[in-house]
Each structure stands twice: as C-alpha cells, then as structure tokens.
C-alpha cells in the first residue's frame, strides 16, 4: 500500500488559518489502512480544526467527507455538488489523491494533510516499511523475491557492497542489508545459482529518471 503519515496539526492550522470554510477530505484506501487519512482521521482533524477556530472566536465551517478513492474520477465527482461551499480542501489522501482532486476542481485550493512516504508493507501494528519503488522493470524473479532497488540503500544490483556487516547496512546499524536478505532467501530456496548470475545494467528510463510515467492500455481504453 501507499504509506503516509499525518502532518502535525500546527502545520495544517497554519495552512488553513485564513479560511472561512474548509472541507476535510479523506480516502477509504491505503491511508485508511495506515490510519493517516481515513474516515476516523477526517473526524479527528475536523474536530481539532473546529476547536482551534472556536478558541479564536471565529466561526469557520468545517465539512467532512471520505471518498472511496481520490485517485478515480468517478468518486471525485461525488463532491461536485458541495465543493463550492468551501474555500479550501484539506485532502488527507496520498499525494496522488491531493493532486487528482486539485486537477478535477481546478479553481479550488487543495492542500495536503499528510506526508506521503512510500509503497510498503505493514510489518506489525504501527510499523510500515518500504518494499517497492515502482522502478518499472521488476527484478524480483532473480533476486530471491527481495528487491535490491528498494531494500539496498545504494540500489546495488549485484551486491553486497563492502559496507555490509553482520547482516546490517552501513548507513544504519538497525537496517538489514538488502543483499544479505537476498542471499539468505536464495539459500533457503536452494537457488544460490541465481546469485552467480550477473544482473545486467538496468535501464532506469522506466523509473523516475525517464520523467513522469504513464500507462496506456489499449485493451482497456473506451
């Protein structure tokens, strides 16, 4: 899932301080699961904003809505009839949702209420860690199912580097060395032969280096 973290309330208050009417807009997908931008968080943020403005003696209208997704046109349409009631939208979806809402409602300021971090997995309650950087050319079949792009700090494709020590990465003693994980997994799979295969130079143009990416599926287009 896409992992995001709530922005500090002070930062959000500073962004919306001059508004008269604010819509707090949540998303039912990834940010709900990582408890940063779902319906519950919409309620908490809206309540916090109301209390802030009340203390200031200001009457600011705070609306609450949570859409199924903010990255799909059809769900964003659901706020068309109310959008004009607000002079700003605080979207607590991921950065995709914030931008897609802004694109859809071009004349309405849409600001983020979360910091979007990475594509990751839920290791334990309250713990998420990165697993994929969307490089556009998946190597997992030859790397024992562990991604050297997202799990090695240097994104080395034929590792480990000389900094790997006791299974940990040189950039942080708490961080497992991605290549140690790959080797351990290949051993467990009995596929150490794969380790001997040199992974060729990667074409990074399918990653962000090639500029903003787009998928056009002719088989799906209407």
């Amino acid at each position: 899932m896409i992992v995001a973290e709530k922005k500090p309330i002070e930062e959000i208050i500073d962004t919306v301080k001059d508004c008269q009417s604010i819509l707090v807009l949540g998303c039912n997908e990834c940010v709900t699961v990582c408890e940063a931008g779902g319906k519950k968080e919409v309620g908490l943020l809206a309540s916090a904003l109301r209390m802030h403005f009340l203390q200031q003696g200001r009457e600011v209208n705070i609306g609450e809505r949570t859409l199924e997704r903010q990255c799909d046109q059809e769900y964003l349409e659901e706020i068309r009839d109310i959008i004009d009631l607000y002079d700003m939208v605080v979207s607590i979806a991921c950065g995709v949702g914030v931008q897609f809402t802004a694109e859809k409602y071009h004349a309405k300021p849409v600001v983020p209420g979360v910091n979007t971090l990475f594509m990751g997995a839920n290791e334990a309650r309250g713990v998420w860690s990165e697993r994929c950087q969307g490089c556009g050319q998946c190597l997992l079949a030859v790397s024992g199912g562990i991604c050297p792009v997202s799990r090695c700090a240097k994104r080395i494709l034929n590792g480990p580097c000389g900094g790997s020590s006791a299974g940990k990465c040189e950039i942080n003693k708490e961080l497992p060395c991605g290549w140690q994980l790959i080797i351990d997994r290949l051993k467990a799979l009995g596929r150490m032969d794969d380790y001997e295969k040199i992974i060729p130079i990667k074409d990074w143009s399918t990653e962000r280096a090639g500029g903003p990416r787009k998928v056009v599926r002719e088989d799906l287009k209407l």
């Binding site: 500090p8 309330i9 002070e10 908490l44 916090a48 203390q55």
Partner: peptide
Amino acid sequence: KVLDALGI
C-alpha cells in the same frame, strides 16, 4: 498530543 497542541 493533538489536545496539547490545540492548547486544550
């Protein structure tokens, strides 16, 4: 924490 930040 939020209540502290809000001064409540």
